[in-house]
Design a protein around this nucleic acid. Structure first.
Lengths: 189, 189
DNA sequence: TTTGACATGTAAGCCGTTACATGATTTA
DNA sequence: TAAATCATGTAACGGCTTACATGTCAAA
């Protein structure tokens, strides 16, 4: 295996490696598991999962076994190798966590909101709020489900992060609605 | 101009178009302005600004004039055309705002935190907290600076969004610290 | 009979990042 | 004399998304 190439792998590869390390998985199953677990803060496209699995295999970080099934297509089940475990540990322990600069196209509309009709702006706010509320409730349910379960404190924490941020969005929407009300009272527009 | 191609432009192109529409600008100046204004929720690389400007020009949404300067290199100053104004209005009014699924590599570490040493985890939390605190304070200063200034309510709102979310992060870090304390009290690890 | 779940991929293409390249002028 | 600011780009590369392609089996 080429150590240098493994160290330059994109984050997605390491995340896939980490997911497989939880338990041996085939591509299709992993796509589902990824979506249900880290999907809320690190979505990965199915096609990319397949290609990452193949690359990790090529680099010797994963091994693959074909598993025949009755009444189902044959699966290609991947498993972490020793080299893979080592690489994962290294990435988790020593890898740097770059500060991410996330994009938010909704805020771009707010930035240009003086060019947007009041009607449209109200609709945008409503949609954004509904989205945040649904997200908050969904994640709050996850948090509740994981409460008091011993091994899931960290996964619960990631869901709680989403709850806190969705709530922040909801609070902010209220702020903005107040600002809009003040503006219309003052006769602007 | 080709309407179909304009409608398929990536968001970044429209954002650049919007920034130029605020006032005619050259690439270098626009990079600075972008960084200082929308940079906090829609960062654009300098090189990309140059290429988007060129494309928008090619599509007839911008026009360009070379402006000679004393003691400075000549600038290529871009300006929105009528077609550009129309396209921008269309994008702001009718364009869809896709729900963005942001990545957060820090949360990935939390997800895999049972494989991380307590020392490392504490360091990660400290770093994340410091980052959020700095961000919150920086944006709070922006909010304050824009207070009571008439035309800047919406830009102020975008900064307030950042404040709310940075604060949510700080609150969450406190949550996680409590969880960690409970875990160590119970003798886990 | 047709929809949906299960299962694995390929191909194309653009977006976006990073690094490179150049040169004048001001300031320390 | 060196570094920082002003100014404009090019080149390369990889990541990620979208769409395409194929086939079985169960259930409605």
């Amino acid at each position: 295996m080429d150590l240098a190439s493994a160290r330059n792998l994109p984050a997605t590869a390491h995340v896939v490696l980490g997911l497989v390390s939880i338990r041996p998985t085939a591509g299709h199953d992993l796509a589902g598991f990824s979506e249900r677990s880290i999907g809320n803060f690190f979505p990965i496209a199915r096609s990319q999962i397949y290609s990452e699995l193949e690359r990790l295999c090529r680099l010797g970080l994963l091994s693959v076994t074909e598993v025949a099934q009755e009444r189902r297509p044959t699966k290609r089940v991947y498993e972490v190798t020793e080299a893979g475990e080592a690489d994962l540990r290294l990435w988790l322990e020593d890898g740097e966590v770059p500060a991410e600069r996330n994009r938010n196209l909704f805020l771009v509309r707010v930035f240009f909101a003086d060019r947007i009709s009041g009607q449209r702006l109200a609709a945008l706010l409503d949609g954004y709020e509904a989205n945040a509320r649904a997200r908050r409730d969904m994640l709050a349910a996850v948090v509740e489900k994981l409460a008091d379960r011993p091994g899931s404190a960290f996964r619960r924490a990631t869901a709680m992060f989403g709850v806190r941020h969705a709530q922040a969005t909801l609070d902010w929407v209220s702020d903005v609605r107040l600002v809009l009300r003040d503006m219309s009272v003052c006769g602007v527009e």
